[in-house]
Structures are given as structure tokens and as C-alpha cells.
């Protein structure tokens, strides 16, 4: 590249700064701590490196499933916090309300994964169930799952009948 090209390129690169489009003086905001990150609904959990992880994430359940697990993950937990789960049936009625306290005695900023489980049985009402998760008294997330009671059709069981 010749000198003229280099000067033009440098001027072009400096133009956005000179016109104020690009600035190095903009203050960067920071997110809050003790933050909700994610909720998943699954059939089971496993522990990996001291944290619970979901197994078989799904939103379809039937009486063959023993339970529904609502797993949540919190970020940068640096103090004691209160969490809670509320489970609602397909008619929107509260059927389970549970609170937990997370203690952080060392005051370190850590990731936490917590869960609550809801036992399933064939007597439960079929339809869309809802679970709401609370962090420090405020609703942080909600999720839903479908509880179905059905007998799957196959050609062989049609023959048998």
C-alpha cells in the first residue's frame, strides 16, 4: 500500500471517533448479583461438579413418570437468599407452595442450582400444569408442563383386543 492509501485509511478509521460516533468515555453498566438464570422442567437430575444438572428435559408427562422436577440456576449468589416454588393444577389452583433458604456463610459469589419435585399419580387432573419460581419474594420465572393420561395405540394391541 502506498503512503497516500495509508493516510486515507487512517483518516477513515479516525473519522467515527472525531465525529463522536465512537467514544471511549461511555460508562459500562453492571448486572445485579443474586440473579436468576434459568428454569427447566425435567424428570430427573444428576450432580456434576457440585451442581445439579437436568436429565431428560421435557414438558410432557404421564402416569408412568413418578415426578416432575423444576430445576433452577442462580448466578453470583453472594448472600443468604430465600427461594420458593408454587405449583398450580390445570384449573389454576395452588396445590403446592414451598420455600427454601440458601445460606452463604462464606460470602463467596457462586453459582447455585436448586430444585423442587412434584410427585405425579394417575389421580391427578390431566391438562397443563404451571410452576412459578420465586426469588427474594418476587416471581422470577414460570413454566408449564402437560400431564396426559392415555393408552398409546399400536397395531399389535389392536389385534389382541
Amino acid at each position: 500500500m502506498n503512503r497516500r492509501g495509508f493516510v486515507l485509511l487512517t483518516l477513515a478509521a479516525l473519522l467515527p471517533i472525531a465525529t463522536g460516533c465512537i467514544s471511549m468515555a461511555i460508562k459500562v453498566p453492571f448486572p445485579q448479583k443474586n440473579r436468576f438464570e434459568r428454569m427447566v422442567i425435567c424428570t430427573d437430575v444428576e450432580e456434576k461438579k457440585g451442581l445439579f444438572s437436568p436429565l431428560d428435559i421435557t414438558s410432557d408427562f404421564n402416569p408412568g413418570n413418578e415426578r416432575v422436577i423444576c430445576l433452577v440456576r442462580l448466578q453470583e449468589v453472594d448472600r443468604d437468599v430465600q427461594v420458593g416454588w408454587r405449583w398450580y393444577d390445570p384449573d389454576g389452583r395452588l396445590v403446592r407452595d414451598i420455600d427454601q433458604f440458601i445460606y452463604n456463610e462464606e460470602g463467596l459469589s457462586t453459582v447455585r442450582a436448586l430444585y423442587d419435585l412434584f410427585p405425579l399419580s394417575p389421580e391427578l387432573k390431566a391438562g397443563t400444569w404451571t410452576v412459578a419460581f420465586y426469588l427474594e419474594g418476587k416471581m422470577a420465572a414460570s413454566g408449564s408442563f402437560l400431564f396426559k393420561i392415555h393408552i398409546p395405540f399400536t397395531f399389535s394391541n389392536r389385534e389382541d383386543s
Binding site: 460516533c21 465512537i22 467514544s23 471511549m24 468515555a25 461511555i26 459500562v28
Partner: peptide, 9 residues
């Protein structure tokens, strides 16, 4: 990596 600020973008 924090790169640079933009007034309106």
C-alpha cells in the same frame, strides 16, 4: 472483551 462505546448505533 469490552471493545468501544457507540453514541447511537
Amino acid at each position: 472483551l469490552e471493545s468501544f462505546g457507540l453514541k447511537k448505533f
